[in-house]
């Protein structure tokens, strides 16, 4: 049966990894390709690279960064940030991404998902959904533009529409939990996993292996985490060992 995927996330700005200061033993901890190879060696099942460059020049380097990572990496790579058009997706896939994640651009124009899925296959098309609990507490709404804009769009309805339009996977981030280190939003994960049939990657809030285990029990098929690995407290292998000890099916 399918194992649970553990997916470290690299935030990259202008070709450099921007998070993670305590990284030991790497010649260049800010080099995305070195960091990616190290995660693979630790047992990462997949990687996500999020381009957080603020300028067009910075974003242009993302394709080069993907090329450098791919030359060393033998596991799947999803790239997000700045995928606004079919051509962006094509350039990243050509450079060595296996999937592209679309967020704000897909909300602004949902046909982008359909076009990417039709051209490159549903397994290449990931919809990244940033969800925040509604201010009245009833359900979740989609937020875009790095959380600056509350769309009013129901997150579960958007997840269903995105899957119908061809997204092969959902990267679901709880905007309420992101950066809090208090664990994933389990209610959100449970509701989303019942709402769609495509796999769900949990994101936002992880800080200990117990959080990852909870997310899987709530319905996630994969767990994305950044600070838990970047801070150097846990290796991927140690996290996977803890998850296996909790009874989950892991690739070891």
């Amino acid at each position: 049966m399918l194992t649970i995927r553990v997916i470290p996330c690299l935030d990259v700005r202008d070709g450099r990894v921007v998070k993670g200061i305590k990284f030991q033993g790497l010649r260049d901890a800010g080099d995305p390709a070195s960091r990616a190879a190290d995660y693979e060696a630790q047992g990462a099942d997949e990687l996500v690279m999020l381009d957080v460059s603020a300028t067009p020049e910075g974003r242009a380097t993302a394709v080069e960064t993907v090329r450098h990572i791919r030359a060393q990496l033998s596991i799947p790579l999803t790239v997000g940030g700045g995928v606004r058009a079919l051509e962006n997706a094509g350039a990243l896939l050509d450079a060595g991404a296996d999937k592209v994640a679309m967020n704000t651009a897909a909300v602004d124009d949902p046909t982008l998902l359909t076009r990417v899925a039709t051209r490159f296959g549903a397994q290449c098309a990931v919809v990244a959904i940033d969800a925040a609990r509604r201010l009245d507490g009833e359900g979740w709404e989609v937020v875009t533009r790095s959380g600056k804009h509350r769309t009013g769009l129901d997150a579960l309805a958007w997840a269903r529409e995105a899957a119908d339009r061809g997204a092969g996977e959902i990267l679901l981030t709880s905007w309420d939990r992101d950066g809090t280190r208090s664990g994933y939003d389990l209610d959100l994960l449970g509701a989303a996993s019942r709402a769609v049939r495509v796999p769900i990657i949990a994101s936002g809030g992880a800080h200990a292996p117990a959080h990852l285990v909870e997310a899987v029990r709530a319905g996630a098929d994969a767990v994305l985490a950044a600070s838990i690995f970047h801070d150097g407290d846990w290796t991927v292998d140690a996290v996977k060992a803890a998850m296996a000890a909790a009874g989950l099916e892991m690739r070891r």
Binding site: L2, D45, E46, Q123, R197, V198, D221, R251
Partner: peptide
């Protein structure tokens, strides 16, 4: 069942295989 199957799953070769070995492979 999740569809597509995305992720690592077990590959179990039968006795006649010469190239394939048991292990985890990535499927999509």
């Amino acid at each position: 069942l999740r569809v597509p199957q995305l992720g690592w799953n077990r590959v179990e070769p039968d006795a006649g295989c010469r190239l394939l070995e048991p292990g985890y492979a990535y499927f999509a």
